[in-house]
């Protein structure tokens, strides 16, 4: 007699095994292209160098006096370097989470992977782990190199800044779930990922104080929770002028973490089921 019991019996351990297997596979693929690894460290430097020379064109004796009018600090490069580290994590969420599913679609492995007896949000978590680890390593390597080249001066409390960065990143990764699900639906990822990540990094103020935006664009920046997280981190590390009191920005980050993680998972589950029902998982 045919058994009515399904093979799908996920447990905590089998889910962990799936997450670990995916992370390990990504780690191996990453190091299979060693030039890519080098470029991940050097590429952000290429974005920072023009900012440095542009800063020089507006500065007197290395002090950006006009810039201080908006930010409260004349240390333009330290401001930029903190923004660049956060931008690296934002880009990882968009490219590492959103684009990873598109890569699986293109190479034809998404549907077989989706058939594995494991929770699908966890499959995405697995794809995120390696990129998160690599981004942490490369972002801080870049910071070290840039600090040597351009100087990096921190006056404030690093641990307090980290305490703000963690909920901000968790909320960001929550958002990544919803974004990845959208890629599953739309199937064309490159432009969407590129434009979205660029807009979020620009409007959250990674490269300039958002108060420098024209008044009609400022509400866009103020609507992004990341703006406040980044602002609080800079306020703590560089004693810049903040948009809100730091305690209020910390509260916003805690709300962002809880709300965005729940919303991201909900959207991912709904859209992923919708895509499976339509049978478009393997189309690209």
């Amino acid at each position: 007699m045919e058994s009515l019991i399904g093979l799908y019996k996920p447990s905590g351990r089998s889910n962990l095994r799936a997450v670990f297997s995916i992370a390990l596979k990504d780690w191996r693929i990453y190091w299979r292209y060693p030039l890519n690894a080098v470029s991940h460290v050097l590429q952000p430097i290429a974005w920072i160098v023009p900012a440095y020379f542009m800063g020089q064109a507006f500065s007197v004796n290395g002090k950006a006096l006009g810039f201080a009018g908006y930010s409260g600090t004349t240390d333009y490069m330290s401001f930029i370097l903190i923004g660049s580290v956060i931008a690296a994590f934002i880009n990882t969420v968009f490219w590492g989470m959103g684009y990873s599913l598109k890569e699986d679609m293109d190479t034809g492995v998404l549907e077989p992977n989706w058939l594995a007896p494991a929770s699908r949000p966890l499959l995405l978590v697995g794809r995120t782990l390696t990129s998160l680890l690599i981004t942490t390593i490369t972002a801080f390597s870049t910071l070290a190199i840039a600090a040597l080249l351009f100087g990096f001066q921190v006056d404030g409390n690093v641990l307090s800044a980290l305490a703000i960065a963690i909920p901000m990143l968790l909320g960001l990764y929550g958002f990544g779930f919803a974004f990845a699900a959208l890629i599953l639906v739309l199937r064309e990822a490159n432009t969407m990922v590129d434009v979205s990540s660029f807009l979020v990094t620009t409007f959250s103020g990674t490269q300039f104080p958002v108060t420098a935006l024209p008044s009609f664009l400022l509400p866009v920046a103020l609507a992004l929770p990341l703006t406040y997280g980044l602002d609080a981190i800079r306020g703590l590390l560089l004693t810049t002028t903040t948009l809100l009191p730091i305690w209020a920005e910390v509260g916003l980050m805690a709300l962002f973490m809880v709300g965005m993680t729940a919303l991201g998972l909900w959207v991912f589950t709904r859209l992923e089921r919708w895509v499976r029902r339509r049978g478009t998982l393997s189309q690209h």
Binding site: A51, S59, L65, G66, F67, S71, P209
Partner: peptide, 12 residues
């Protein structure tokens, strides 16, 4: 991103 950076560097 560059125009806004230049605007910020120019100062209010």
């Amino acid at each position: 991103i560059y125009i806004m950076s230049a605007r910020a560097l120019a100062g209010p």
